[in-house]
Structure formats: structure tokens, C-alpha cells
Design a protein around this nucleic acid. Structure first.
Length: 437
RNA sequence: GUGGGUGUAGCUCAGCCGGUAGAGCACUUGGUUGUGGUCCAAGAAGUCGCGGGUUCAAGUCCCGUCACUCACCCCA
């Protein structure tokens, strides 16, 4: 084309982007999710893409792969931006936000937040380096009513069941049950056991057994651990009690779990299910935990996850600010459907009506017609040149524009409108026309 | 971070045992006068990821490198 050098455009691994028609569907999803969150009274906030590294690392258990910020032109000694990192989730920034705006907020503070987050992991199917999370959290002073532990799955149910996605299940567990159970067994490091059991569905009984043996657990301890992890579905509370392990923390956890399950009993069976194998890796969770995945493809990863944390915001303020939250992995869900070719029906452009420009002389008239249609609520574009009418219509066809408007070709002539799908064309008055008729 | 695969026109790819590049789709123009999605014809478009090596000669062989991709890890 030219001898000018071009930078070859290549996809950046883990940074998805969509065509306009796919994006149109994504935006419908975002609107739906937002409406769902707001229908429960959650308020929207947005936080900067970056946080100070010490904020991101505040609870720094897992070594999250954080992208840091630096200026290309910064000289070697300049480390003024060195403390900034892109947020890897929305919960930590939220905790910081609450601590910082403590005096301006009304508690319990219920917020939703839909933003992109970044993680420097190796990308793969379903795993991205930049993706969008839709978070809802509640933070309160001193204690968060258990009510919210049950309300969050209800909101997720509301939102996800309104999207055309494959069958999914939201699994619920309570960390106190696990930790209390292990403590009741006399296990020294309950967290290590939680971490091992979390891998159960991936490495199986024997794999977990091996790890636990390595942790120094006896068979008398391992067997009940595995038995606990297998408990799922109806009657979980009784089944756990039947294992005969007793501890104060366990009892507390069981009561909380029972409360949540009871509260959600009206949801369709199988949508929210107790599953004692759910542990949620390390993380900051201390009570209820959630994790949702697709029924026919659980290995794809969690599409929604969250839980209760006792004191995340307490890292940033001398107050006790526990919270509970859950996050919908929008990108993960959406990308799967895109890859499977299930995202269809999105418009290439939002134009309802394209106005033909008959000739340079009549362009002003076409613009007036466009303005009139726009005022009447139709998304209207006036063709961008005086190309042959055939070209103009062809453009509308390619863009999937449903109606092509023909202003009078001669002074005093009639307006006409063409229905592109049906090919019908007839006289119409731009002041009263409507596509329904 | 570890291991495997791939890297040729905008896209999907072909290119046999080395002889300086092709197809389909997409794109542009035309098939005359105010109307599209079909068809026909013509046309434009490639540092064969990048660097080095072997060779008279490399898209084709060798080495390195980068990128993409899959698995592990981890997670939304």
C-alpha cells in the first residue's frame, strides 16, 4: 500500500477485545447487572485503576502478580511512581476506600463496582490478564449482619439467571466449619488443610491424602477431613454433625451456614448448594465463602466467587470493619460464550435509520430530516457523502441498519422509507413515521 | 516461573525431497440514467515474526530471540 513501516497489530495475550456487535451484547449484560445490583439498593462507586503497593499488599498473603506503574521517560533514580500498582481485584481497593471515606459513608455501606482488574499471570482459556469484575460488597462497623451473607447469593442468582448463559451452580461453604472441624480433630495447621482440601476436585482423594500425610496428619485425622469435603447438597448440617467432631468454631460455622441456606431455601433447587469442599484458597475469607462454576464445565474455573472477611478494611483504619462480598467474573463468563459462538444478535451499530443524501444540493435537507428523526428518538445517521444511492444502501445493509430514509429527491417531493429486512419501500412522513406501523 | 505447539496477504490457511510466494473470504472499481444483500469481470494488498548461520540459492534446513497458544501453577 505504501512504503511506510507499520507496527504489525498483534493481539496481546490475555487482553481480550470484541467486535462492535459482540461489545453491544456485553453492554446489554453490563446494564442488566447494574440494574440487578441497584434493585437491591447497592450504590455505585469507582476507584482508580492503581493503588499504592502497600495497599495492594496489605493482606499480602498470596503473591498476587501485580503490574506496577512506571514512566518510560523516568530516569533511573526516579522512583516516584514505583509505589503504584494496578489493582488485581476490587475488594482490596474497596476496603481502602471505606477506610478513607469513613466519615462520609453511611453504614452498612453497600456498594457495587464494575471495573477492569489486572493480573500478571500466564493467560489461558478463561484466564485473562485484564478482565472485568462485577463486585458487590457490604462493609459495616464492628459486625456485618448474617442477612447479607444470604442476600449476596440471592442477588447473584437474580443477575445470572437473567443472562442467557449455560447452567451454573453457586456453591456455599463456611470457613469456620472447616477450620473448626480441623481444630476439633486436633490438626495443628488448619489453614494448610484448607488449602489442600481446596484442590480435592482436581487431584482427588489420594492426592489430598498425600499432601495431608506430608503435613503430618494421621489417617484418623485425614479420613474425617476427606469425609467432610465430600458432603454436599441437602442436609449438610446433619451430615457434618454425624461425623462426631466437636468444637466451638465448628458449631458457630454450622449455625451460620444453616442460616444462609435456610434463607435461600426459596431459590430453585440446585442454584445455590452447600458444598463442604469449597475453601477458596488462601485469601482473606473468614466465614461464608462462595464459588460458582458452570455445571457442564467446572474445570473452566470459577465464574463468581467471594466471601466474608473479618477485617480487611481494618488494615487501613483503627476500626473494626468486617465485610462480605461477591464478584461476578464477567469477562470469564462472556469470553466463553463468545468463543463458543453463542453471542449473537448484537447490532453492528446502533443506527435505527440511515438518511440517504440524494445529491450535494439536497444535503441540507437530508441533515434536517436526520435531526427531526433524532429528536423523535431514533438513532439516525445521515450518509457521509453523495455517493451513488446504491452505495449508500449497500453501506446500510452491511451495517445492519434496519431502515433507510429517502428525503425528497426533488423540491416538494415525498419522503420514502425502506425496510431493509423486508425490502419494502413506501411514502412516509418523518414527523409521524414509526417503524412499528 | 516450568514444559509442549505454532508464527506465510486484514482473516482462515496452502506452499511436496531448499530454486526469491498462492487460494478462499474480506477490501476497491466496473457491469451507464434514483436503490442493497446474488452473479460476472478487473484490481489492490505480503520486511514469509525478528536476528544470525549453512548453501550458488531458504518461507522451506540449523541456532537464537520475541510473540501467540496449550498444559502445570493460580484464580474471576
Amino acid at each position: 500500500m505504501s512504503d511506510q513501516r507499520v507496527v504489525r497489530p498483534t493481539p496481546i495475550s490475555g487482553f481480550p477485545e470484541w467486535t462492535p456487535q459482540v461489545r453491544a451484547v456485553e453492554q446489554r449484560w453490563l446494564d442488566h447487572i447494574r440494574a440487578g445490583f441497584e434493585s437491591f439498593g447497592f450504590a455505585s462507586i469507582e476507584t482508580p485503576s492503581v493503588e499504592n503497593l502497600d495497599v495492594l499488599m496489605a493482606k499480602g498473603e498470596t503473591s498476587q502478580e501485580v503490574y506496577t506503574l512506571h514512566r518510560l521517560q523516568a530516569d533511573a533514580k526516579d522512583d516516584s511512581d514505583a509505589r503504584l500498582g494496578l489493582h488485581f481485584d476490587l475488594t482490596v481497593p474497596f476496603a481502602r476506600y471505606v477506610a478513607q471515606h469513613f466519615n462520609e459513608l453511611t453504614f452498612p455501606f453497600k456498594r457495587y463496582q464494575t471495573q477492569r482488574v489486572w493480573r500478571g499471570e500466564r493467560p489461558q482459556e478463561g484466564r485473562y490478564r485484564e478482565f472485568t469484575q462485577c463486585d458487590i460488597d457490604v462493609i459495616n462497623v464492628d459486625s456485618v449482619p448474617l442477612h447479607f451473607d444470604a442476600e449476596l447469593p440471592r442477588i447473584v442468582y437474580r443477575v445470572l439467571s437473567g443472562l442467557d448463559i449455560p447452567a451454573w451452580t453457586l456453591n456455599v461453604n463456611n470457613r469456620k466449619v472447616l477450620q473448626g472441624f480441623y481444630e476439633g480433630l486436633g490438626v495443628k495447621d488448619p489453614i494448610a488443610v484448607i488449602r489442600a482440601v481446596d484442590k480435592l476436585h482436581k487431584i482427588g482423594d489420594e492426592g489430598v491424602r498425600e499432601i495431608l500425610e506430608g503435613e503430618g496428619l494421621t489417617a484418623e485425622q485425614i479420613d474425617p477431613c476427606l469425609a467432610l469435603a465430600r458432603i454436599r447438597g441437602a442436609g449438610v448440617i446433619e451430615q457434618v454433625r454425624a461425623l462426631g467432631v466437636v468444637s466451638e468454631l465448628l458449631e458457630e460455622g454450622l449455625e451460620e451456614l444453616a442460616f444462609v441456606l435456610d434463607d435461600l431455601a426459596d431459590l430453585p433447587e440446585g442454584s445455590v448448594v452447600a458444598d463442604l469442599s469449597i475453601a477458596r484458597g488462601l485469601d482473606y475469607y473468614t466465614g461464608t465463602v462462595y464459588e460458582a462454576s458452570f455445571d457442564d464445565d467446572p474445570g473452566y474455573g470459577s465464574i463468581c466467587a467471594g466471601g466474608r472477611y473479618e477485617n480487611l478494611a481494618g488494615q487501613f483504619i483503627r476500626k473494626r470493619l468486617p465485610g462480605v462480598g461477591i464478584s461476578i467474573g464477567l469477562t470469564r463468563i462472556f469470553a466463553k460464550l463468545v468463543a463458543e459462538g453463542r453471542i449473537e444478535g448484537g447490532r453492528i451499530c446502533p443506527t435505527d435509520v440511515m438518511v440517504v443524501v440524494p445529491s450535494a444540493e439536497r444535503r441540507a435537507d437530508a441533515l434536517r430530516t436526520g435531526e427531526l428523526l433524532r429528536e423523535r428518538g431514533f438513532n439516525t445517521e445521515v450518509f457521509h457523502s453523495t455517493a451513488k444511492v446504491g452505495k449508500q444502501i449497500q453501506y446500510a445493509a452491511k451495517k445492519g441498519i434496519p431502515f433507510v430514509w429517502f428525503p425528497p429527491f426533488e423540491e416538494g417531493g415525498e419522503h420514502e422509507v425502506k425496510n431493509m429486512a423486508q425490502g419494502e419501500q413506501g411514502a412516509a412522513d418523518p414527523a409521524v413515521w414509526s417503524p412499528a406501523t
